[in-house]
Design a binder for these strands. Structure first.
Lengths: 349, 349
DNA sequence: ATGAAAGCGCTAACAA
DNA sequence: TTGTTAGCGCTTTCAT
């Protein structure tokens, strides 16, 4: 490997000090325009590449932002990441991404790695099995900003970007009730996760608000993956009277349930009305279209990254504390899978 | 910000030289076990965090691997990334990810950023508008390994991980012909991209092999996004006689086409048989299920990252040259959308 | 098995 | 506007 060109080489070449070269290259205002140009020219001619390691060492920052997600290959998470990348890129930050695979151990390991690689900030959507946040302590202690999104710790004092899951589930459940459903089953992921715990609350409250009984047997827990539908529907059919409404916590599982229902010639929405979550592509593509909660992943990514970047840029360490939680708007999209009668609700999509 | 603990602090504490502390911390063999333990203990007690910037500066490597994809939020790309993350994580590398948004300019900018941040290696799936690879020259010159995946440059000499797109399209087209299709339309993305150019070849050869005419009007180009189906079907219906087979270059667009067909009560597969690409979730969820090419995204990510990591680990700069192209197996999954008569082909899924 | 010394390339405080 | 000086914290010869 041949030796890299350094600012010393440039300095020697143009007859200036390394300091001036450094300043010129970083567009420091107190450098004569002519000097600046001369330096840039020489740098280009000599094939100079700034050594970011040295710069990092001096400046004590990496220009990297870490992101830890449960799984990279999920429609929601990848939308979030796309939004984050957009903003980070604009702001001149690099994105270092890792996945926890829903495992606390991996999340801890990833957090450690992120800390050791000295990211300037960390964005986290927590793993399903995570029930404590001790592993973020090093960040807190060192005052490296940590911002949670979507799946946030219950503990107070953590900053996060979320939607109002309680409200969303309440709205969806209410809608089902308005469509005439009286026995609504609710399919959820791990209740340790705020997202699902909150939705369960919203579901309960909606039942309560309409004088319907809450029955634990209507709560079905699984990992919401694409092949869970059969089992969900099986479980529903085992009961008598069976459910006439189904609120599923993501569209993949909702679509899977729909398939299982269609296989058995159970009419949707007439016999069982169905509402999903996320507004994934699939909810628009299956037949009937699945009513769903429009969950703004891309936007959530943008907002989360924007707050972090602003925070880093301005250097006040209070903002992130002040704005403790950012709640994004979500909305129920009513489609064929739950619409039994025409109402004032218009189908919007 | 209070001062960080350094190896000097530890050295002072345990009464050793910084050198020995450094060696102990990196498990150098020529350090007495007892010393090693003592150092680790002190490090832990004092809350030491290795300064990776200094280490990078000395070792001239970042432990980061860069990845540039066209879009983060695509089912295929996010699977690839998941596979890459898995391997990189295991091997102790961090993933720095950015997206080109299908734009050459952004790809160039991202490449520059990756180069400046001194990633140890780069994985790239090229943007649609990229038709030259000059922007990777700095990497080539500095012998930083660059490995392409899926969308690779036509130019020889670049290492890449791909599937045999020509063969895949050939197989799919042949299948449609065997199902009795005689006028097969082919929906593709930007033909600058090897992926689509190769598929077009495979499609043509298959027609040729079966004595069918190639008609350019059967080639439909668009961005394969979720709302392209209407337009595709419109275009097909404008012709007389209309197509009786449809090969679409991804499942999202295939599903969209399917919707448009169903809307018009055109029977699939009877009137128009349909084959997609990628084996995305959606191909299994719509009705009828869409026949598709199983495109191993996750595996492609694993393989690409594995080759890169191996290459970096072993330090021989030849391997990557020798194995010029790794071709992964893909396969046609025959489902309802194209199966007109029972054959020996079993429906596998 | 341990240590001394040098330097990776940059930036920031201070000086001129 | 430019330069001098002094590290940032680590690793790596080379010596002991």
């Amino acid at each position: 490997m041949k030796k890299d060109i350094t600012i010393y080489d440039i300095a020697a070449d143009v007859g200036l000090s390394p300091t001036t070269v450094s300043r010129a290259l970083s567009n420091h205002p107190r450098v004569k325009e002519k000097t600046r140009l001369k330096v840039f020219e020489a740098a280009k001619a000599m094939g100079y590449q700034s050594n970011i390691f040295a710069s990092n060492l001096r400046k004590k920052r990496s220009n990297n932002i870490g992101v830890i997600v449960p799984k990279l290959n999920s429609p929601f998470q990848s939308s979030v990441l796309a939004g984050m990348e957009k903003i980070a890129n604009q702001a001149g930050y690099n994105l270092v991404i890792s996945q926890s695979m829903e495992s606390l151990d991996k999340e801890i390991a990833n957090t450690k790695t992120m800390f050791n690689s000295r990211v300037d900030g960390l964005l986290v959507s927590m793993a399903g099995s995570t029930d404590e946040i001790d592993h973020f302590k090093p960040f807190f202690q060192k005052e490296v900003p940590v911002l949670f999104f979507d799946r946030v710790p219950e503990k107070n004092g953590c900053t996060g970007v979320i939607i109002n899951n309680t409200q969303a589930a309440h709205e969806a459940t209410t809608h089902l009730i308005q469509q005439g459903c009286r026995r609504i089953a609710h399919v959820l992921g791990n209740l340790k996760i705020n997202v699902y715990a909150d939705r369960l609350k919203g579901y309960k409250y909606a039942l309560l608000d309409h004088g319907l009984p809450y029955d634990e047997e209507n709560i079905i827990l699984n990992d919401l993956s694409e092949d869970t539908g059969e089992q969900v529907i099986q479980q529903i059919l085992n009961r008598n009277p069976r459910a006439d409404g189904l609120l599923v916590s993501n569209d993949t599982c909702a679509a899977s349930c729909l398939m299982a229902l269609k296989k058995r010639n159970i009419k949707v929405p007439e016999e069982i009305a169905l509402v999903g979550f996320n507004n994934d592509l699939i909810s628009r593509m299956v037949e009937p279209n699945i009513s769903t909660i429009n969950y703004p992943g891309f936007h959530m990514g943008e907002v989360a990254m924007k707050s972090l970047v602003d925070h880093l840029g301005e250097g006040h360490h209070e903002i992130l504390q002040k704005t403790n939680t950012i709640t994004l708007r979500s909305e129920l999209l009513i489609r064929e899978s739950s619409l039994r009668k025409k109402t004032n609700h218009d189908i919007r999509d």
